[in-house]
């Protein structure tokens, strides 16, 4: 665990910015956290090709830090959405999705107020052309552009997603459809 005010990141393979409103939503979701001291090292880790994962509030932080394109706006219907959703794997050939079998439609929980992904049409076209859209909602819960639930950067080592795969890793607490996400990551770092 690394504190936001820390300046140094230990030598790690994967940096994971979890969700859960961990960093507050002052000014804009993720805006203040994206400028925290530790982010210098997180950005350097990403630029070196290290894996960075941002889930929910962590996704917002990564867009605010400009490690990922676009931004996350207030949900189109203004409601906090808290339920399980089905995801389509839009790009199965990434370090985050390679363990999902072809045609997998994992069921993963979402819990957010600002999950409405936005980027201009040109950026969205480019991202789709480059395979940067990784997850899409089967039934869009928040108004996200082109049903986008998760994206990667151009290099493919930084991922942000609104759904919570870490909340779907045990049959006792909502299923195991999130496990393949972490299995994919483990394949990548071995």
């Amino acid at each position: 665990m690394v504190w936001h005010a820390d300046h140094d990141l230990p030598d790690v393979d994967i940096v994971l910015l979890p969700g859960g409103f961990s960093y507050g939503d002052y000014l804009r979701s993720g805006a203040i956290a994206a400028r925290a001291p530790v982010m210098h090292d997180v950005i350097a880790h990403a630029k070196r090709g290290g894996y960075v994962v941002g889930i929910c509030n962590g996704f917002q932080v990564l867009t605010e830090a400009q490690l990922l394109p676009g931004a996350l706006l207030r949900n189109a219907n203004l409601h906090f959405v808290c339920r399980s959703v089905h995801l389509q794997i839009a790009n199965p050939d990434t370090g985050f999705t390679c363990a999902y079998g072809s045609g997998a439609v994992p069921q993963i929980p979402v819990a957010h107020h600002d999950g409405n992904y936005f980027a201009d049409a040109k950026t969205l076209d480019r991202m789709e052309g480059e395979g940067q859209v990784v997850f899409r909602y089967c039934d869009n819960p928040n108004g996200s552009a082109r049903d986008i639930a998760g994206i990667i950067n151009e290099k493919g080592n930084v991922l942000g997603m609104m759904p919570h795969p870490e909340r779907a890793v045990d049959p006792a607490t909502g299923g195991t459809d999130g496990r393949a996400f972490f299995e994919s990551l483990m394949r990548g770092v071995r």
Binding site: L27, R28, A31, T63, P69, A71, F118
Partner: peptide
């Protein structure tokens, strides 16, 4: 540019 506005949106 650095904090107060997110010029993407």
């Amino acid at each position: 540019r650095k904090l107060l506005a997110n010029t993407v949106i």
